[in-house]
Computed example of a mutant assay.
Amino acid sequence: MRKAYEEAQTGTTVVLLIPARTDTAYFHDYIYGKAEIRFLRGRLHFEDEDGNRFPPAPFPSMVVIYNGDHQCLN
């Protein structure tokens, strides 16, 4: 998270798909109030190129967007 945050400070747009762990230090240090956050409803499901489905992720997910211009859109 620190690397993503630091890259965003140079003006780079960074998009992350990560577990929604709002109780962690990195969430409060590098995400909350510093990036756009989109919480995904439900659990992510994955399948391979042959169509084999895997069990859903055991955790909720969020998309974090550093838009490159230092604006917080929460």
Rank of each mutant, 00 (worst) to 15 (best):
Ala25Ser: 09
Thr13Ser: 04
Ala20Val: 01
Gly33Pro: 05
Tyr5Val: 00
His45Ile: 03
Val14Phe: 02
Tyr32Asn: 09
Gly11Ala: 13
Gln71Glu: 15
Gly11Leu: 15
Arg53Met: 12
His45Gly: 10
Ala35Ser: 00
Tyr66Ser: 03
Pro58Asn: 09
Gly51Cys: 05
Glu7Tyr: 07
Gln9Arg: 12
Arg38Ala: 05
Leu17Glu: 15
Pro19Cys: 06
Tyr66Leu: 06
Phe46Glu: 01
His45Val: 07
Ile37Gly: 03
Cys72Met: 10
Met62Asn: 04
His28Lys: 09
Gln9Pro: 01
Arg41His: 12
Phe59Tyr: 08
Arg41Cys: 05
Gln9Ile: 02
Pro58Cys: 12
Ile18Met: 06
Met1Ile: 13
Pro58Tyr: 09
Ala57Thr: 09
Leu40Ile: 15
Tyr66Ala: 07
Thr13Phe: 06
Tyr66Phe: 03
Val63Gly: 14
Leu17Thr: 07
Phe54Trp: 06
Asp23Ser: 00
Tyr5Arg: 01
Gly42Phe: 14
Met1Asp: 14
Met62Val: 06
Ala57Asp: 10
Tyr26Met: 07
Arg53Val: 08
Val14Gln: 14
Ala35Thr: 00
Thr24Met: 11
Tyr66Asp: 07
Arg53Cys: 11
Val14Tyr: 06
Met62His: 03
Arg2Cys: 10
Pro56Gln: 02
Leu16Gly: 06
Glu36Asp: 10
Val15Gly: 10
Val14His: 02
Tyr5Gln: 02
Asp23Met: 04
His45Met: 04
His70Gly: 13
Ile65Ala: 07
Ser61Asn: 02
Thr22Trp: 00
Arg53Phe: 08
Val14Lys: 08
Gly42Val: 09
Ala8Glu: 10
His28Ile: 01
Ala25Glu: 08
Gln9Thr: 08
Asp29Pro: 04
Arg43Gly: 04
Glu7Ile: 06
Leu44Ser: 04
Asp29Trp: 07
Ala20Gln: 00
